Computed example of a mutant assay.
Amino acid sequence: MAGLRDSMLGLGVSIAVGLVLSSAIVSYTAGRISGNKQSVSVKGLAEKAVSADQARWSITVQGGATTLPAAFAQLRANRPALVDFLKQQGFAEKQLAFGREEYEVVYKQDEEGRPTREVEQYVASQSVQLASNDVKRVDAAAGKIVQLVESGLPIRVNDPEYLVSTLEAVKMSLIANATRNAHDRATEFAKTGGATVGAMKSANQGAFYILPAQGGGSDDDYGGAYDKSTIDKIARVVVTVEYAISQ
């Protein structure tokens, strides 16, 4: 009976140790493969500061009237004010792309707030897309466009998108650095058990993240998060690597 109790106690200790190790960033694969060889699985992290070098900005100008022709005429009369504003901010008209002219019908509502079949007005609209490599100029213009809104010009303004054109190069450099970080972690971990790190057995890349430098933000692009709202960003990648180890 004493032997059985000792065995059960040993089993309980082994389970507890396994649970602790599984919660750490590195984990030790205790299964013997062949010739008394074992493996260690580690996560490597790398990150670097990056700055956006491209900007996209979408603004929609509108025109409203009780007839459709008059609404389009009002739209075309309002459009030059937006174009002139962007030129005043230092952008050339060739940097602008104009979308199709569109319209929607606004119906009157009854006393209970339900739409009727009677037309209240037509609203014509057109999007204007600005593309520029001068991200700071775009950011400054975005802070000033409220002047057009205050003047009564009917526009809808989207937030600018700030993009990094060298994402693939950034990603590859981070993968290399994260792999080296994983090897360093494996080496330190193996030392505690008097082991030596051997060849890489497998490697997996986790998601690639482009995050705001000040934290926050999320967008499901490029296999991870891709923040487009800020100029200054942090690029981050995590890899999981398994190494053979020997005693």
Rank of each mutant, 00 (worst) to 15 (best):
L4I: 12
S7T: 13
G10C: 07
G12Y: 13
L19C: 06
V20E: 11
L21G: 10
L21M: 11
S22R: 03
Y28V: 14
G35T: 05
G35M: 05
S39N: 09
V40D: 08
S41P: 02
S41F: 03
E47F: 11
K48L: 13
K48N: 09
V50G: 08
S51C: 02
S51H: 06
D53G: 01
A55T: 02
R56L: 14
S58V: 14
S58H: 09
V61H: 09
T67M: 10
A70N: 13
A70R: 09
A70D: 15
Q74D: 10
R76E: 12
N78M: 05
R79T: 12
R79D: 00
A81F: 06
A81I: 03
L82Q: 01
F85D: 09
Q89P: 06
G90R: 02
A92I: 00
A97Q: 04
F98K: 03
R100A: 14
E104L: 12
K108W: 04
Q109A: 11
R114H: 10
P115T: 12
P115G: 07
T116H: 09
T116P: 11
R117D: 15
E120V: 00
Q121K: 15
Q121F: 07
S125R: 10
Q126Y: 07
S127R: 12
V128K: 05
V128S: 10
Q129I: 14
L130E: 04
L130S: 10
V135R: 05
R137L: 09
R137I: 02
R137V: 04
D139C: 01
K144D: 09
I145W: 06
G152Y: 01
L153T: 02
P154L: 00
D159H: 11
S165C: 03
S165F: 01
S165L: 04
T166W: 01
L167E: 15
E168H: 10
A169Q: 15
V170T: 15
S173C: 04
S173D: 15
L174Y: 11
L174W: 10
I175L: 15
I175P: 01
A176L: 15
N177W: 05
R180I: 09
N181K: 06
D184T: 11
R185T: 10
R185A: 14
A186W: 02
K191R: 09
T192Q: 13
G198D: 10
M200A: 08
S202V: 04
Q205C: 06
Q205S: 14
G206C: 10
G206P: 12
G206F: 10
F208W: 14
Y209V: 08
I210M: 05
Q214A: 14
G215L: 05
G215S: 11
G217P: 00
D227G: 00
D227I: 00
K228L: 00
S229C: 04
S229V: 06
I234H: 05
I234S: 08
A235R: 00
V237D: 07
E242R: 14
E242I: 07
Y243Q: 06
Y243M: 05
S246W: 11
S246E: 15
Q247Y: 11
Q247V: 03
